[in-house]
């Protein structure tokens, strides 16, 4: 592996200042499973690496008024065994159980999962200097596109690889970002950027900013949730398509619904059209199918990924069936 220097900050503030000062030559590391792959594959070439994982202030899980506050450096396995998860945050538990492998969950962190880089075969390949890496071409658009996006895919058809992100967004999670000067809190949904907004990065993180906490509000009584993941291998695989759904039926009609897809777009894709169509409706399978159809009408599949439309339709319908009853 290409050599780099290494530092362990004493505090978040120190980490932020250092990262801001060093610019892109410094990179934060947490569990390391994603960053080290990128370094070994020559995709990332940091001069220095800053270990955030030893910051004790970032590895907490707390409940506050029923809401969950998860430190960015909480490992996925710590989160997985957190008792209250099964009771109130079923989607998160289901997403975690499908995510990576036990060894990765043991070191991988919540912030690392949300900030991981895309798995596009061309982006990760040292021999392709793709547009995202500063080149001029996207090789996937007319190359092998079986794992790529069917929505919002005109510029760079990468898909966002996180399982946690759709689950959190379906629960209206917020993220707390700490920078050298200030902290800011924003909905996780607004944390991700489309390639049209920034081709080389996937998040709104500014130089020197790090994701320090995820806040998940407590779902209202009667809310159900599920995370469905469709993949080729039974474990240790990224989603071809995934669907996170959270919703509530009150007096026979849909009172609340959030539906978020993974594996279909460069960001976790919020299926707002479906949500709007179903609000106030009786939860019936025909309506679910129509709502899914409306979402997928916008799909622009590439030569190798048409199948994802049908798979996404199925997952949306099944997720809504599981939740809205």
């Amino acid at each position: 592996m290409h050599p780099f220097r290494y530092a362990e900050p004493e505090s978040v503030a120190e980490a932020c200042r250092f990262l801001k000062r060093q610019g892109t030559s410094a990179m934060p590391i947490a569990g390391g499973t994603d960053l080290l792959s990128e370094i070994k594959d020559g995709v990332a070439k940091p001069e220095s690496v800053l270990n955030l994982k030893r910051l004790p202030s970032l590895a907490h899980i707390r409940e506050q008024d029923g809401a969950l506050r998860i430190g960015g450096m909480t490992t996925l396995s710590q989160l997985q065994v957190y008792p209250v998860l099964r009771r109130n945050f079923r989607i998160i538990e289901e997403a975690l159980s499908t995510l990576a492998t036990p060894q990765i969950r043991a070191v991988g962190t919540v912030a690392g999962n949300l900030c991981q880089r895309p798995r596009c075969l061309y982006y990760r390949h040292p021999l392709f200097l793709c547009a995202k890496k500063g080149g001029t071409t996207c090789f996937a658009l007319d190359g092998d596109s079986r794992y790529h996006a069917i929505l919002q895919n005109d510029l760079c058809p990468m898909v966002h690889p996180s399982d946690l992100a759709p689950a959190f967004i379906a629960l209206e999670a917020q993220v707390l970002l700490a920078g050298p000067e200030e902290k800011r809190l924003l909905p996780l949904e607004e944390f991700f950027l489309l390639p049209g907004q920034n081709l080389s990065r996937e998040t709104v993180l500014k130089p020197g900013e790090i994701l320090v906490e995820v806040r998940v509000p407590k779902p209202k009584a009667g809310t159900r949730g599920t995370y469905l993941k469709f993949r080729e291998r039974g474990a240790g695989d990224f989603a071809l398509v995934s669907a996170a759904c959270s919703g509530r039926v009150l007096r026979g009609t849909v009172a609340e619904l959030r539906l978020v897809l993974g594996g279909v777009a460069p960001i976790p894709f919020r299926a707002r059209q479906a949500e709007e169509m179903l609000m106030g409706q009786r939860p019936k399978k025909e309506f679910f199918a129509a709502a899914a159809q409306a979402v997928l009408a916008a799909a622009t599949p590439l030569s190798g990924n048409r199948y994802k439309i049908e798979a996404a339709r199925t997952l949306m319908v099944r997720a809504m069936q599981a939740v809205l009853k």
């Binding site: 290494y6 590391i29 792959s37 994982k53 043991a106 070191v107």
Partner: peptide, 10 residues
């Protein structure tokens, strides 16, 4: 853990 993808210093 996967020792191939953990920095020893960490």
């Amino acid at each position: 853990v996967y020792s191939c993808q953990v920095l020893a210093v960490q």
